[in-house]
Design a protein around this nucleic acid. Sequence first.
DNA 1: GCCGGATTCTATAGATCAATAGATAGATCG
DNA 2: CGATCTATCTATTGATCTATAGAATCCGGC
Lengths: 214, 214
Amino acid sequence: MRTRRKPELQVVGASPRATATNQRRRQSEILDAAAKIFAERGYYGASTQDIADVLGIRQASLYYYFPSKEIALELVCMKGVEGFFEAAAEVAAKKITAAEKVHGLVEAHLAPLLDRADYVKTFLNERQYLPPASRKKVGKLSRAYENVIEKVIAEGVESGEFRKGLDPRLMTLALLGMCKSVSAWIGKDDPYQVPMVAEQYARILLKGIGKTRR
Amino acid sequence: MRTRRKPELQVVGASPRATATNQRRRQSEILDAAAKIFAERGYYGASTQDIADVLGIRQASLYYYFPSKEIALELVCMKGVEGFFEAAAEVAAKKITAAEKVHGLVEAHLAPLLDRADYVKTFLNERQYLPPASRKKVGKLSRAYENVIEKVIAEGVESGEFRKGLDPRLMTLALLGMCKSVSAWIGKDDPYQVPMVAEQYARILLKGIGKTRR
DNA sequence: GCCGGATTCTATAGATCAATAGATAGATCG
DNA sequence: CGATCTATCTATTGATCTATAGAATCCGGC
């Protein structure tokens, strides 16, 4: 038996002629719900019914806004990855030491966890389930981002600011690994706040990267 | 339409009276296949048909060996987590410096990726999908393991070997995060070998933990 | 008060999947 | 040889899930 839904008085945009805006707002609400559920249960563990439940609408109504579950995943992943490259590139372009850049990169990587954690988590954990075409698209952005980080580290090694013989790729993977895992526990039982974690993680990384002080 | 399977001449244990052993061997083959598929596609992304295909048997035949997909996941996860606590405890009990212990902990954490990567990956990524009872069981082992690490770090901080004011819990999460991510790319396109990664990662961590040298 | 577009609903098709029931082939044993 | 046991198979059920089709409702504007 189905539970019938309350009329749920429609809070429609006050201003008239804002239909296009309203539609975009609603689409973004739908995506928020999808991101939340995907992040929580994984792509295959999440049903479209689960997403509809978050919104208090019927499962089929979702298809007015997106054509398939896979497309929804793609949109969520894209929104989860977007901005990472730009933010990193901005940090990398600054006229600061490589160490300060690494600090900035960690901060920039963790910052999105504050305002769109579900999107980022879904991108990090579920992008593997994208259909090939989307996966390539997302993977491209992702690799470009990683390359920015790798370059910063490589330059730090070349300039002698970081320890000689350090493998920039491996170091990048270490940074990404540390940061990725944060999304798994931040906001859970642990009382840690994003800026503090960024501070500490950058410190851990840097004192390991930097040459031993004399 | 089904593709009919070849008779596939039965390679049964040569020695008689080895039925119990054979059964155990077969069960472990089934689990290997399950671990492989779970690690590859995730629990919900993997069908029992996929597992059967690896073995060249019918989907229903799996149920001769395990009672449900969930139980299979539990067995895989248990095998994926087992030994971690013991190996870590052994390292922690040694009469060596805290730095050497951290090094040993990283090595011990990554070592299982050599001989049972699929089990470890499944434990790391899919344990969230276990039914509550199993999840608690696995989580208990997991937490005990993490506590060993945390204690080693805390002792290093107390003894003054590591930087003062360091948060042992956060440091543990950093170590685990770095190490967890290794399972995602080791053996893929990257040419890195486990012992070398362990060496480098321990180094990164330690030079960050250790007090600045004078 | 009615029109028309926007949004959500009901109902259902079609596919997939885990799990069960019962049959069977081959090995083992008395 | 005949009985039993083991491992697998065939066949199917029932649940779940994505996606589609078309009806119903809401709401601003006329």
